[in-house]
Design a protein around this nucleic acid. Sequence first.
DNA 1: TCTCCGCCTGTTATCGTTAACTTATTCAGC
DNA 2: GCTGAATAAGTTAACGATAACAGGCGGAGA
Lengths: 361, 361
Amino acid sequence: MIRKPKKPVTLADIAAEAQVTSMTVSRVINNSGYVHAETRERVLRVARAMNYRRNGLARGLKRQRTETVGLVIGDIANPFAAELTRGVREVLEARSYTLFICISEHTAKEDVQAFDSLADHRADGIIVATRASQTANERLEELIDSGVPVSLIGRDFHHPHADLVSADNLKGGYEATSHLIDAGHRRIGFIGVSLTQGLRLRRFQGYLEALKQHGLSVDEQMIVGGHEASDQMPGYSTEEMGYDGMVKLLELEQRPTAVFARNDFTALGALNAIKRAGLRIPDDIAIVGYDDVPLAQHTSPTLTTVRQPTREQGQCAAEFLLNRIEGDSEQERVERTFECELIIRESTAQKQADFPRSEAV
Amino acid sequence: MIRKPKKPVTLADIAAEAQVTSMTVSRVINNSGYVHAETRERVLRVARAMNYRRNGLARGLKRQRTETVGLVIGDIANPFAAELTRGVREVLEARSYTLFICISEHTAKEDVQAFDSLADHRADGIIVATRASQTANERLEELIDSGVPVSLIGRDFHHPHADLVSADNLKGGYEATSHLIDAGHRRIGFIGVSLTQGLRLRRFQGYLEALKQHGLSVDEQMIVGGHEASDQMPGYSTEEMGYDGMVKLLELEQRPTAVFARNDFTALGALNAIKRAGLRIPDDIAIVGYDDVPLAQHTSPTLTTVRQPTREQGQCAAEFLLNRIEGDSEQERVERTFECELIIRESTAQKQADFPRSEAV
DNA sequence: TCTCCGCCTGTTATCGTTAACTTATTCAGC
DNA sequence: GCTGAATAAGTTAACGATAACAGGCGGAGA
């Protein structure tokens, strides 16, 4: 009679039951080495009957790799992170690695905790997609120095042995802003950063750059909505930031005729604030978002935005990482920047009927 | 000279350097047992200098627990999952467990993979928040039978040794629908399920129940938007489902005067479809969502919806799980159902000015 | 002086798996 | 019949950490 013990079944248990040694069982389980067909059958039967699950700890300890990759993201519930994850997963699954995700809620402390957890549990490599911070960068450097393969997505941090994937958000921000300028706008607000803090945000730099290039001056009053706390960031509820920011802009004596929002959710908040105020989009105020979340094509008006190839970034980061894991962890760093694409929709259309209006998908 | 080897530093390495045995180093690292203050200092100094990271595999193997919990969710990029995760994390962190998240993208196969990965890597327990499926349920049962502590959130699966946390979505759906009926609506559509598949969705059952209780008949034409494929579900892009579903409803000869959407994103899609068609909300069509995502209070009109205490569910599931982990894994199952709350906003308001309109937050 | 207990450290064995090596057995080819 | 390759197992020793036990030492109390 085969028992179903509370203590997890081990190779030795199966071996005893099947009248072989645990080495043979191991060979069967891993499909390696020579095992007689009959023996294999018998062992498999017993293993199944006993509901065997292999012990990844022991296995990993002995083999010195776990076939596991960690992904650290700051914010779940964010279409960007979701799409990134999807890309990462696709590649990992194809190469039969397991993905464990750690969330850091955008705080440096939790970032570090996530790194440590993954390193302690001997993930074979780590993909980091959180925003950079002093503390976290230091720990990251230690990890990389000690040989942990790391691949970074859109993170402002450089290390000779960590690969880097990013989107050209500087250019994206530049193009979004230029688009507004080309449409004749001269008073263009930015929602979603504080002036000081925003300098680390490429899309905001692109905004500044575009203004400068076109000979427009920067009006500090028109930059709204940043959180001043440096190590704490909000979750996905950035439409609140967009709403509040827009309200502030509308209260200005000379309100902007266009706004560039840090991301689509912020843009959505702003969009609703504008509607509430009884103004029309884009006639009274034009608006551009960033990220091209799925919702952006379902709002009314539909949202002009900048698309970055998110899934591709995830795939690329995963590929870089796997190459490093399976190659030399200290090999030269690889870097790849993806182009962004301005997607023009109704929220910045030149001539525009009133909203709501009838039909037209 | 202390080297920084490519091979990870072990206790033995530190021990050699600090002229003690690895047992002493272990005691220092874990702050357990007696260690002379001077020795402790010396060991710590060496450990830091060598950039020691403990090996969770070896540690876990020996101690037979990893202080790690796995969370399986179907869909990242979903405010519901995010909030749930937040609740789970809060509790785990307070009791110093590490959380690893696995995404299953709503397929049974990936669900099973996630369970296996977590079980293989000897997570101390698993929280499951994905939708039930035949295959996955079977594997889940095996795991629980073999002693893995499991706690379920809103999953249609029962087992004597797995705790269960859920929201009363039947009642939530009932109340949402009743709210519409009370407001005088008689033709009420449902967006987001197929009639057959929807029977597993409590909030849809609540809808049916409410119609029945109020003597209204179910019109199959008014139930739209389900995916027929049973093991595959879409990601977050359910606003598309909402949009398309609403378009179908609007094409009916007798279109509904109100719709209940399976979740807020679906509702948002529907909302935009209605606006596109030049109809007014709630005057022409009233609409109710589900989940109360943050965005729901920032749309125009703001969205009537059903709030479920999401974070609390996460916390509760985590607490149940930890009790099971630290107690008896085969103890009697605990169950807890949270009440939902109907949040009435503009999209179902009785009398309503046109949108967009001026002011009023 | 002797005993006992609190401190500090070391020794041993083990968690479950597998790499590397060893031992048989079989059988084709000369 | 002999050689050597292919097949089919078993044996041993780790992987890195720690629980359990075993001293040794010093000092308080009898």
